[in-house]
Design a protein around this nucleic acid. Sequence first.
DNA 1: TTGAAAGCGCTAACAC
DNA 2: GTGTTAGCGCTTTCAA
Lengths: 353, 353
Amino acid sequence: MGKEKKVTIYSIAKEAGVSPSTVSRVLTNSANVNSEKKERILELIDKYNFTPSAVARGLTDTKSKIIGIIVADVRNNFYADMYVACERAAVKEAYTVMMLNSFGDIEMEKKQLGKLIEWRADAIIHMGGAVDSMKTNKEYAELVNSVAGTIPFVVTGKLDGTNCYRVQIDAAAAMDMLVDHLVANGNMKIALLGGRIDVESTYVKYNRFKDLVSKYNLKENAVLTDNWGGYSVEEGETTMDMLFKKLTLAAKPIPDAVICINDNTAVGALKSIRKHGYRVPEDISIVSYDNINLASIVEPGITSVAYDYEGFGSTIVRTAVDAIDGKNVSRMIFVKPKELIVRQSSDYKRNNV
Amino acid sequence: MGKEKKVTIYSIAKEAGVSPSTVSRVLTNSANVNSEKKERILELIDKYNFTPSAVARGLTDTKSKIIGIIVADVRNNFYADMYVACERAAVKEAYTVMMLNSFGDIEMEKKQLGKLIEWRADAIIHMGGAVDSMKTNKEYAELVNSVAGTIPFVVTGKLDGTNCYRVQIDAAAAMDMLVDHLVANGNMKIALLGGRIDVESTYVKYNRFKDLVSKYNLKENAVLTDNWGGYSVEEGETTMDMLFKKLTLAAKPIPDAVICINDNTAVGALKSIRKHGYRVPEDISIVSYDNINLASIVEPGITSVAYDYEGFGSTIVRTAVDAIDGKNVSRMIFVKPKELIVRQSSDYKRNNV
DNA sequence: TTGAAAGCGCTAACAC
DNA sequence: GTGTTAGCGCTTTCAA
């Protein structure tokens, strides 16, 4: 096995009695070729099951046709959804994706970015981690700047001091959807739960929430953004536990509803609420963001803001490809959330509405 | 932006007053270089933030240092866990991974495999989809055969008619763990739920289950593998619904426990059981496979067989790398499941044990 | 220790 | 329409 002569564009050309360029031409369909020859070539290609080397091709035209994607962690459903959407969009544009996980670790991000640069990715997409942070990591920004001039860099958050293309979900609009829904159902004491204030999307949600509290004259029940919060189920539970404790100490009533920073924390909050002897949604409603699989799996199902992942993914990739092609692309694109999926967790009217 | 002369090994060499080969030598650490020159070169590399092109390197030594991974769907936690484990292991071996989703579609699998071949991946890992099937897709096997001679091909299932390297979880051993646990808790009427019999791992579990029924003299309550089953939450729920219907019609009692083909179906079964007015685990115990995140999130937590994903991933990658290096690698490796994580869903003794 | 030169497999002028 | 040639950016003999 494996001792057959290596088949290349040359060996094909030789056997077909034509020049390598002719083979290349039929391979890339870049020029007309005598149909007889073409046929002969095609046959040989089929016979040897020949696939031209993308590596060699990449060297030649200095376009790798690779779009690199750095993602915080694919094991997180949100990123997995995003990634798949991007992969699909990239394939449509005839690009291959190279996806690398950073686990939100800055050193890892630098390393992975390095790999992508090594492979001469035509564009790089970065979602989660460093680009989610309010305060941009200096070193990373520098690294990005050193390549952003030649490689379009698309982020789903922000990266201060760089001129990346930013494509992000309109987190404020998403907050509006949630609060509108809660208010329409008579929820007046609303708590915001989870997340970290140094994460940009969380920061945006937090501020919008404050605005809405004023606008609707809500009784803001608790806003948890300091040093306690997070994005996991466990953190959601802990944070809700702490909220209960805080309210008890202050002799305040429980909230009508909690807005969780994502579906994971919502599930955690759900656990905590039940643990404390309350019912969802009869005693407390729960709503959240992302509408990942989990939101529909737990009982009661969690009301959640759904994004159009496919659309988001293709906008990101489109931006990257347009930038690669030298087109003028807007540096900042907001993607509207798709819709609010109302489930049992908030399907309850109170205060006589 | 982007108008600076391109920096290559040549430009560095020129500016350093040495030859390209010398630069290459310091880059690859492949030979001793005068320390002064070395220093000068290193400085320039740093100054320009130079990263050698993996593409060019790939062309040169015909080793791309890419390990291609075809996965059914990363949005599935099981595969995400597997993928991350493989990525980590690959990075340790100085390989870059290229991960592509097939969505279990054979056409897509062929297409993605094609991409990997184009990129001259040094090895290809395929998990889920075609390699899970009892009856191997002929065309795919052919395609694999046409490259397996030169590119090591590692699958987590099987691919008849090819000489792939197989690394798989010992599904029979996993079934033993589950049944042992159930029997130890006095469960005698046990049902096997979900999956499709044309999927290899399911087939193995099914057969082992039959054996164990005899061995322990269990009252096999129902084995669902015909045309109804599946691997999703919804399918789990539907299948359990059907089991109830079937038992009711036959005027048979409900089972003591159900073994679900994976955590998703277990959650579905949980929903169905509650819907029918029974409690878990008091009326029916539930156990399953994979121990993905979900198993610990739902309430009650699902008892599940945990795998050592890191270990599994590194065994797979190890196999691939060894094969690349021409070492003699066993064509078939079984990985033992790590442990049984007992959670509330089966933490109940019955029948006076 | 170091440089020259060839070559990896392909594409892209440029002639014919 | 087709072949020749020259690279793309690197590594690797082979000499020196």
